[in-house]
């Protein structure tokens, strides 16, 4: 590889990185600007909608026969317990904006915040 060629390659590398960073930063920014608070969470198990809970009421609900425990507290939802080893869903934290999701892949459970007019993904 000649010196000139590698400089040219470096330039394309930087271009690629810049484009990717720009696209991802832009979409993150758009997501933050256009997000709005939801009023319910939808619980999906195995891809089908199982039930919805209002974010206005505090409560604790076992999901999927107790593999995960959903807690709603002060307008925010989070999973307090999961029986899987990775605990990704528990570590996801609290969600309250439309489109935000907590996913437990091993148990195939997804909890999504939805607004007044059905599922609305903010991107």
């Amino acid at each position: 590889m000649s010196g000139c060629n590698s400089v040219k390659k470096l330039r394309y590398d930087i271009l690629l990185i810049a484009v990717l960073l720009f696209v991802s930063a832009l979409s993150v920014a758009l997501m933050l600007v256009f997000r709005r608070g939801g009023d319910r969470v939808a619980v999906e198990i195995d891809g089908s909608l199982v039930c919805e809970y209002s974010l206005a009421e505090n409560g604790e609900y076992p999901l999927n026969g107790g593999t995960n425990i959903l807690v709603i507290e002060n307008g925010k939802a989070y999973l307090r317990y999961a029986d899987c080893p990775d605990k990704v869903c528990v570590n996801t934290g609290k969600i309250s904006y439309v489109g935000q999701t907590i996913v437990c892949l091993p148990n195939r459970v997804a909890v999504t915040v939805i607004g007044g007019g059905g599922v609305d993904i903010v991107q």
């Binding site: 990717l20 960073l21 993150v28 891809g47 996913v103 997804a110 903010v122």
Partner: peptide, 23 residues
Amino acid sequence: MACILLETNVIVYYLPFLLLSGT
């Protein structure tokens, strides 16, 4: 793959963050 397995498209929400971290 997660979209296919979970039969939901809500996780597309993570994509911008994953693009950023992947870069």
